Computed example of a mutant assay.
Amino acid sequence: MAAATQQMSSLPSGLRVFSTVPDILYLPELVFGGLVWILVASTSVVPPNPLGWVMFVSIFCFVMTFLWLIIFACGGHKNSSAWATADFIYHLIAVVFYLSASVFLAYITVLFKDLSLVSLPVKYYKIDIAAVVFSYVTTLLYFIHCILSAVRWKSF
């Protein structure tokens, strides 16, 4: 029990980032967030405002998560409590952003269900459905990471 508490209260660096909880979630967040980015970018952007928000969120979170991973892997955080707080705050912001983007994307996809309203090919509708699924999976990953980061922050 003492080893688990000690591991949870210290921030990992180097290759330990890829084997500690919650930091092991960086890779799935990058993969699924990148899929959302690719899928939304590959469709026709008919209502530009909501889909522009989805693109902003997916690109912003992808870049920030990658930078966060690099900072932790290189040991740039120096194991301070400020970094644990920043990790929790970043993932909380990512959850709020991704949840709002997922709702917008799902709403737009539901509007596209009646393809007679919009002259888009069926393949765009199917790609949008996949983007919605991956967007909610990414939201769930960021939420789990946020909860585990909060636990680590409180134990720091």
Rank of each mutant, 00 (worst) to 15 (best):
P50T: 03
A41D: 14
N49S: 05
F112H: 11
I147C: 11
L115K: 09
H91R: 09
R16G: 06
Q6M: 12
Q7K: 13
S135E: 00
P22V: 13
F104D: 14
V122P: 03
Q6P: 00
A4G: 08
L30S: 10
T65L: 03
L69R: 09
S155W: 10
K113T: 14
L69P: 06
A3H: 09
P50A: 07
A106L: 14
F143R: 01
H145Y: 10
Y125S: 11
S155Y: 15
T43A: 12
V40E: 05
C146S: 02
A4E: 14
F32S: 06
S44N: 06
L92W: 03
G33H: 06
F143W: 08
L11Q: 06
K126Y: 11
Q6G: 01
P12Y: 07
S19T: 15
A86W: 00
M8H: 10
F32W: 05
T20C: 12
P12T: 11
V40R: 05
S58D: 07
T85H: 02
Y107M: 10
A131E: 09
A101W: 00
F134Y: 11
L39V: 04
A4P: 01
A2F: 09
V54H: 04
V31N: 02
P48S: 09
V40A: 08
S42I: 10
T139H: 02
A131Y: 07
V137Q: 00
M1G: 07
S155L: 15
G34A: 09
V151K: 09
C74F: 09
L105E: 07
M1C: 05
P28W: 04
K123C: 04
N79Q: 13
G76A: 15
V122N: 12
I38K: 06
I93V: 12
Q6W: 13
L92G: 03
A2G: 01
P12K: 08
I93P: 06
V46R: 03
F143A: 13
S13A: 13
V151M: 09
Y136L: 10
H91Y: 07
P28Y: 08
A41T: 08
G14F: 11
T138Q: 08
L99Q: 09
V45R: 05
F66G: 13
F156W: 15
A86Q: 02
F18Y: 15
S116H: 12
V21H: 02
S80M: 11
T65R: 00
L51P: 02
G75P: 08
T5P: 00
A131Q: 03
R16P: 04
S100L: 15
I127G: 00
T138N: 12
M64C: 13
V95E: 05
V54P: 07
T5C: 04
I89P: 01
V137T: 02
W53D: 05
G14E: 14
A131T: 06
V46M: 06
P22R: 11
L141M: 04
A73D: 02
T43M: 15
V95F: 08
P28I: 07
V95M: 09
V122M: 13
W83V: 10
T139V: 01
V57W: 00
I89K: 01
S100F: 12
G34V: 08
L141P: 00
V63W: 10
S42C: 15
V57S: 11
Y142S: 00
G76K: 14
A106V: 01
I70Q: 10
F143V: 06
L140M: 07
Y142E: 04
V137P: 03
L115A: 14
I59M: 13
L69C: 15
T43H: 03
R152A: 13
V151S: 12
I93Q: 02
L120M: 14
V21P: 00
L105C: 04
S119Y: 01
